[in-house]
Design a protein around this nucleic acid. Structure first.
Length: 392
DNA sequence: TGGCCGTACTG
DNA sequence: CAGTAC
DNA sequence: GCCA
């Protein structure tokens, strides 16, 4: 009884606190000049972003990784970069070295980057870029199950337009849905609509299990004004209630006519594992309201159900950003742990290969995960970029 | 020179 | 297993 | 791409 009570209590606190810092994040966020559109170094960032996307479609994930990190570093730079001295300052940042420095220098001197112009001329890039533009828009927009291999394949098969793909390509479920909701999924979701979606789901979930705690993660929790999708994390104070919960929730949302299509439904694997968790990914649309509010777009909705013990780790993971998570996991690894979306545990590795995972370390909050790793807590609104976590 | 997160789902 | 997403 |  005490355990249940305690679990419930801490989740209530979590939920409560999340709400509270979310509102703080927004006000902090609004006071900053945060939006990419009015960025100080817009030109540099957009060129580096194009480089990132080109390497992405070439399948060079590590250059893609490096360029994405570099974009974040330039975005964070406090002033407009216009002199060699500014570039020298940039070079002091880890993850930003001489080759990137030379490129930034070229951009501030000539306004463009020769390397980029050359790469864009390559026929395979030119054609693939068409698809990447179609399917990937920007890295923030979310993918549709189409990566560089698929794009290359389509190019080889002679497809050149969206209609070619529509008519000739053998698409999997994920890709069909991506095509079906093409315009909708490109559109960003305003913060207020994310909240309305959360509210709708919460209302339906409460009909099934009133003790559930529900938190919206992703870029929303990081305080962004717009999101690419809605990422809902759900738990229940009693671990036993987790099993099969997501199926019930999906059923309920289906009955309410809220879900329009499914990417992936809750799986039945590992149902009885202690760390059992479930994922739903699909398309939803808010119903028109009585007072005449009409929602134009279908939205990408992810729902994850985790047991209480895994909740802090899930919260940490699904709040992102992707690069922030990778930094943190990398640090955990260097410290001899392994960090995942459901646990933190000591790990033994041979040749960088995990051979044994120790007893998981219990954490009852996100803060505690940072603490165990010997890191200072990072607020969600400060998790937008790659970081270098250092040993203290 | 080798590592750059760790895991889950689809087909 | 490869490819993709989170 | 960058870093150790």
């Amino acid at each position: 009884f005490f355990f249940f009570f305690f679990s419930f209590f801490y989740i209530w606190i979590e939920n409560h606190e999340t709400k509270r810092d979310a509102s703080q994040e927004v006000s902090e966020h609004d006071s900053k000049i945060e939006d990419e559109s009015c960025d100080l170094n817009y030109n540099i960032v957009s060129i580096l972003q194009e480089m990132q996307r080109i390497y992405e479609l070439m399948g060079d994930n590590w250059r893609e990784f490096a360029y994405k990190r570099a974009c974040g570093i330039v975005k964070m730079f406090p002033k407009k970069i216009e002199t060699e001295a500014d570039v020298a300052l940039l070079l002091k940042t880890k993850g930003f070295s001489k080759k990137l420095g030379a490129k930034v220098l070229e951009i501030i001197q000539t306004g463009q980057l020769k390397k980029l112009n050359e790469l864009k001329k390559l026929p395979q890039i030119e054609a693939s870029n068409l698809f990447m533009g179609i399917w990937n828009q920007t890295s923030l927009c979310g993918n549709r199950g189409v990566g560089h291999q698929t794009v290359t394949q389509w190019y080889r098969l002679g497809y050149r337009t969206l209609d070619d793909v529509r008519e000739k390509a053998a698409l999997n479920e994920r890709q069909k849905i991506g095509l079906k909701y093409y315009d909708d999924l490109r559109a960003k979701i305003p913060r207020c609509e994310v909240e309305e979606i959360e509210h709708f789901v919460k209302k339906e979930v409460m009909k099934i299990e009133s003790e559930c705690a529900l938190v919206t993660c992703g870029s929303y929790r990081r305080g962004k004004a717009e999101s690419g999708d809605v990422d809902l994390l759900i738990t229940h104070p009693r671990a036993k209630k987790i099993v099969g919960l997501l199926e019930k929730i999906v059923d309920q949302l289906n009955k309410a006519g809220f879900l329009k299509d499914h990417f992936s439904l809750p799986s039945h694997k590992n149902k009885h594992a202690v760390d059992h968790h479930d994922t739903y990914m699909g398309i939803c649309k808010l119903p028109d309201t009585a007072d005449g509010r009409v929602y134009k777009y279908c939205r990408h909705l992810d729902i994850k159900v985790f047991p209480p013990a895994a909740f802090p780790f899930a919260l940490l993971y699904f709040t992102g950003s992707d690069h922030f998570n990778r930094s943190m996991r990398y640090f955990a690894k260097k410290k001899g742990y392994t960090l995942s979306s459901y646990q933190l545990a000591p790990a033994i590795r041979l040749n960088n290969h995990k051979t044994h995972t120790g007893q998981p370390i219990l954490c009852s909050s996100e803060e505690q995960v940072f603490e165990v790793l010997g890191l200072k807590y990072v607020k969600p609104c400060d998790r937008n970029n790659h970081e270098y976590f250092e040993f203290s």
